[in-house]
Design a protein around this nucleic acid. Structure first.
Length: 243
DNA sequence: CGCCAGGCCGTGT
DNA sequence: ACACGGCATGGC
């Protein structure tokens, strides 16, 4: 995936975002996300990684796997207290424990415990249903939709928001609210609007994975832009960045 | 030791 | 509608 020179900063932010995808793809290569062995394990990871380092999530998932409760049936049978102990490394047990139980309860009550049946819902209705669950906000809902259920929706995580802010693709948004999330997601959709619809799921999948890959290294809160593959775009800024 | 992580939610304004 | 603090733990 050849990226070419960084586009002029006067250009449409969506085009610049698309350039970033190409640049990251040629730098990091295929990401093969989401790192999970099953759709259900992926959903657990989406919950557990909320404001939590992935390393800690891996330890929680290892605990659950060792307990043999990674399949839906296993987690259903696991008492809440035991679940909270298993996920302790990734924190927030009083929120994430009941939230995971609520997901399984929803799956059982409305979809006969079948992830396939859940995935068969229309995207808009499915997203609304996920957002209505406790502990599921826009990013978690979209990550589940895209990676576990195969729906073509963009995932606008904190790294992507931060990258876009530093490159002045979006207005500085100190408070990360629902509105800011949706506009970032919309910008991502625009970035891939000229691609064939059937390739959107794959592109959204790859783009989010790449955003995390570059973000972990170059776009932490106290970052560290030096050596970032996107700095060709950043250098063209007419005014100095404050971050 | 202090900062921060692949967010979300309740409360106050 | 939006800003703000709490939620927990562990890696670096």
């Amino acid at each position: 995936m050849k990226a070419g020179p960084a586009p002029d900063r006067a250009l449409d932010p969506a085009l610049r975002l698309r350039w970033m995808h190409d640049r990251l793809a040629e730098t990091y290569g295929a990401q093969h996300w989401w790192p999970a062995e099953s759709a259900f394990e992926m959903i657990l990871g989406a919950y557990l990684t909320q404001n939590t380092a992935w390393k800690a999530v891996e330890r929680s998932l290892a605990n659950l796997r060792a307990a043999g409760v990674l399949p839906v049936d296993g987690l259903r049978a696991l008492p809440l207290a035991a679940l909270q102990r298993a996920i302790q490394p990734s924190g927030f047990p009083t929120r994430k424990g009941p939230a995971l139980k609520a997901f399984v309860a929803m799956l059982d009550a409305e979809f006969s415990g079948s992830l396939e049946a859940l995935a068969a819902c229309p995207t808009a209705a499915l997203r609304a249903r996920l957002l209505a669950l406790p502990g599921v906000g826009p990013e978690t809902a979209d990550a589940i939709l895209l990676y576990a259920l195969g729906h073509a929706v963009p995932v606008a995580d904190e790294y992507l928001r931060r990258i876009s802010e530093r490159h002045q693709l979006i207005d500085p948004a100190p408070g990360r609210n629902r509105q800011g999330y949706e506009s970032m997601a919309e910008l991502t959709r625009q970035a891939f609007a000229s691609d064939a619809p059937e390739s959107h799921a794959r592109l959204f999948n790859e783009f989010h994975a790449l955003a995390v890959a570059v973000g972990k290294i170059h776009c932490r809160r106290t970052a560290h832009c030096a050596g970032c593959p996107l700095e060709a775009d950043l250098r063209q800024s007419s005014r100095p960045l404050t971050v």
